[in-house]
Design a protein around this nucleic acid. Structure first.
Lengths: 296, 296
DNA sequence: CTCCATCATCGAATTTTTCGATAGTAAATA
DNA sequence: TATTTACTATCGAAAAATTCGATGATGGAG
């Protein structure tokens, strides 16, 4: 019992004529005959009595009319809802490094929430590999990486920028103000770094390994806010993106170390999977992040 | 948007896999792919995200699931109602001569009503030509004729019997008891006959015409109960089926006239159109009439 | 009595659906 | 690590279904 036949049946029942229904539907009359017969065969009952070339609904036919109408109403409603402007609602799963999550929540998340109060955001943290894996398994809608510059034909980079990074330490640190430091001068100092999974941490390790150097951090921790506050009160060193240290640099609590022989390109990238269906909500969210979370 | 595709879609959505749905439905996997794509094209939206060979419903997809379920429920309900034993209800239009209507209502109609209280009967009266016309226009479901024996490939004779008929008059009539009367003896007496339309009246006229005779009735009236009561109180003559006069013959108020030279074959026939859909109610009704309205 | 309207039917043309094979990819397994 | 398995996309060919146009039968209108 296909919808096509039900539609034809409705027209026939309303017009009381195969011929007229055929004209109205753009079919030939024999097609209408065939379709009705098809319904009758499938339902194993007579829908119309044909007496002297005029048709009359049987009781079964009358039953079918009401059923067919219900189906048509349902169909029309559904299609209408499809064309209706999609509502800004639903659920979005963002995964990003701790530091990015924090900065987003502190700065512009409320703006988005005000703009789209019905859209619920789930922001979780994770390292680069996990995030990409989540993209691959459609467990995250969009991610932000801080890592080497990622390119892969399966991913769409919605926005990206290179991230300025520095070795940082307390302004009281013995290296503060020193010019032209070498990384060799500091590798044996006590370090606090983010956990290994974070992309820029890995990139740093690899870069040092090229120079046959290695940092053994005394503390590894994902929360960069904790790192920075520890730095301020200690003689430890870290390697962090500027946006994380910005406030404490401005306030003078921390300072950049002028290390000249390590130059690492870390990229901040807003990524989603190429096969991801972008709902209007998701598009809006991505736009919002592009505008607010990246330098303009 | 055909039902077939919606069913497939439901299975895919429930199993989360094109392949499994194909197995369950007996399709090849490519067919399922095709059907889903067909839906997506028609609705102009993505129903499943395909990321790494695993599928996930989109929001639109989720909407469609609930819609498709509704349609399926409707369909199942409808088909179920079809297979459910048809209820004995509905409407039946019987057309019959006045005399037959009366006898039916007086004798066995109540039995039928008790058996099928939800079936409403509309019994109207009409002459043979009208009745056949009504069959041809599907305005009557079944008719009973008192006429010459009707045969036509478009009609189905559910039951028929030859109808004994007699010239009748009051027992006080001057012909009462006379043997071997000729019709010539009585043609000029005052006659009450049914209206011309009634079949057996026409047949009588035609038969007499063969003998170059003619009856000019002083009264023509459809209601045979009126004819018989008038006969009993007058010297008039009529020509009626025995079932009409039975009671008054038994009571002795009327008597048959022994007219030997007119022999007319009148048939009582229960007829419906060959294309008539016999609902269970109608079948039951016809059966009832066959059993009760005809001699066994 | 002829013309028109109606539905049924048939075979041919067309369209749609389905299949089977193949490819590409990821995950599981050895 | 290599291999096997599992999954979806795609393509062309085969099969099936739909549609059409012509024809026929029949009743009604003019």
């Amino acid at each position: 019992m296909e919808l096509r036949n039900l539609i034809t049946f409705i027209h026939v029942a309303e017009l009381g004529s195969f011929t007229k229904a055929a004209e109205q539907l753009g079919y030939s009359q024999s097609t209408v005959s065939f379709q009705i017969k098809q319904l009758e065969t499938e339902l194993d009952c007579l829908l119309f009595e044909r007496i002297n070339h005029t048709i009359t609904l049987t009781e079964r036919g009358r039953d079918l009319v009401s059923y067919a109408h219900q189906v048509r109403v349902l169909t029309d409603e559904f299609k209408e809802n499809l064309t209706v402007e999609e509502e800004l609602s639903g659920h979005i799963h963002l995964v990003a490094p701790d530091s990015v999550c924090e900065s987003m929540m502190n700065t512009h998340y409320m703006d988005f929430h005000k703009k789209c109060p019905s859209v619920s955001i789930c922001a979780t943290t994770g390292d680069s590999l996990l995030m990409l894996d989540m993209l691959d398994h459609n467990e995250a809608d969009v991610i932000i990486t801080l890592d080497r510059r990622i390119y892969n034909k399966d991913y769409i980079i919605a926005k990206e920028e290179m991230l300025p990074m520095h070795f940082v330490a307390s302004s009281q640190c013995k290296f503060a103000g020193k010019k032209n430091l070498s990384v060799r001068d500091i590798v044996n100092e006590p370090f606090i770094l983010t956990e290994y999974g974070q992309g820029y941490r890995r990139v740093l390790d690899r870069e040092l390994a090229k120079m046959s150097l290695e940092i053994t951090p005394v503390l590894e921790i994902g929360r960069t806010d904790i790192i920075t506050s520890l730095l301020a009160e200690s003689n430890m060193i870290s390697y962090l993106p500027d946006f994380v240290t910005k406030d404490l640099i401005t306030s003078g609590a921390l300072c950049y170390l002028d290390v000249c022989d390590v130059k690492i390109d870390i990229w901040k990238q807003l990524i989603y999977h190429k096969n991801k269906w972008l709902s209007k909500s998701l598009k809006t969210f991505i736009d919002h992040v592009k505008k607010n979370e990246f330098s303009h």
